[in-house]
Computed example of a mutant assay.
Amino acid sequence: MKEILLIFLIISNTFGQEINCEYEDTSDFGDENKKTFTCRLRIYNPSGFDDFEKIPGNHDDDVNAIEKSTGHTSIIPSVLCKQFRNLEILSLAEKEIKIVSREAMENCRNLGALYLSNNKIREIHRDAFEGPRGLRFLDLEGNQIEQLSDGLFRSLSKLEWLSISNNPLHELPENIFKSMAALQYLYISNCDIVDIKLDWFSSIPRLIYLEMSHNRIDELPIAVFASLNELRHLIMSNNQLTVLNSNAFHPSSLKNLKSLTFNGNSIEAVDPDIFDAAENLKIARFYKNECVDDAVEVDATTKGKIVLNDDKFSVFYDCISNFDYIDGKNGLKDEL
């Protein structure tokens, strides 16, 4: 009787699965060199079986994008990459995916963009990205990931854009970004991060945009941003910082900065050397802090001690005075 019931359940679940494509030529007809053929995926696979053999249709070699899918699945079926080997874009946002297996994208050798935001992902196999080594865009935002294994991104040397925001990560491995030398945009917001590891950014010198808002960071380690010589925008709003010190940077990592955003912290003191070294700074946002509650547009051509000599920076007077006092009392600052 138990055997019969088990067979019945297997048959019921198998026939309850569905995977289909609505195929469409989505080429940009204004650009003869840009040809795209899209699968509008329809999937129903709540039990997470990975036994799909074939997606109906005869466009296996044509399809290079899976977008605007409907339905839900608890896994990424491996048939997608097995059948559509020329996939460049895989969009499976909001599909209730829970697990990303090693096999899921093993055959996605040409994949350039992967959208997995707003799923229920808790687990990503350490080798999940061994197949799509050419990824340039990866969106993991808005999942339930509590841990990223050390070496997860080791094969993504071409990745330029990464978001792991809105996941309950708490912490990240020291070398999590070690192999990602091409990375330019990084989002780690609302992850309940408390401590920034010194080596996180040392191997991604091409980073131009870093957002770490809505965490619980209360201190910037000495030289933590020192290797980011291309950094343009730094956003660290809604953390628990009390002091903004130039020793978190190097003059070369401040030189190209165009915006600093530290709204909603508890900043009581700001090192004026930050503004002096950031010669291309356009705007500094410091709303809702202890010593300043303002956003200041900066004249990037101003030279010298701009904070002290330019009336536009009078809002930082208390911050500078506090920093000088703390530095004089406790030896707060190392030289830039």
Rank of each mutant, 00 (worst) to 15 (best):
K2I: 12
C21R: 01
T26D: 14
N33F: 13
K35L: 12
T36Q: 15
C39R: 00
L41D: 01
R42M: 14
G48K: 09
F49G: 08
D50R: 07
F52Q: 09
I55S: 05
N58F: 10
N58C: 08
D60M: 07
A65Q: 10
I66V: 15
E88Y: 09
E88K: 14
I89M: 14
L90M: 11
S91V: 05
K95S: 08
I99K: 11
R109F: 09
L111D: 02
L116N: 01
R122W: 07
F129D: 06
G134M: 11
G134Q: 13
G134T: 11
L135D: 04
F137V: 14
L140R: 10
G142D: 04
L152R: 03
L172A: 10
N175E: 11
N175W: 08
S179P: 03
M180H: 01
Q184S: 13
C191Q: 06
L210H: 03
D218A: 09
D218K: 03
E219D: 15
E219A: 12
N229F: 06
E230L: 06
L231V: 03
H233D: 07
N238I: 02
T242I: 09
V243H: 06
L244F: 01
N247W: 13
N247G: 13
P251H: 00
K255F: 13
K255R: 13
K258Y: 10
T261C: 09
N263H: 10
G264Q: 05
F286Y: 15
Y287R: 15
E290L: 08
C291Q: 03
E297L: 11
K305W: 06
V307N: 00
D310F: 02
D311P: 09
D318F: 08
S321I: 14
Y325V: 08
G331S: 12
K333E: 01
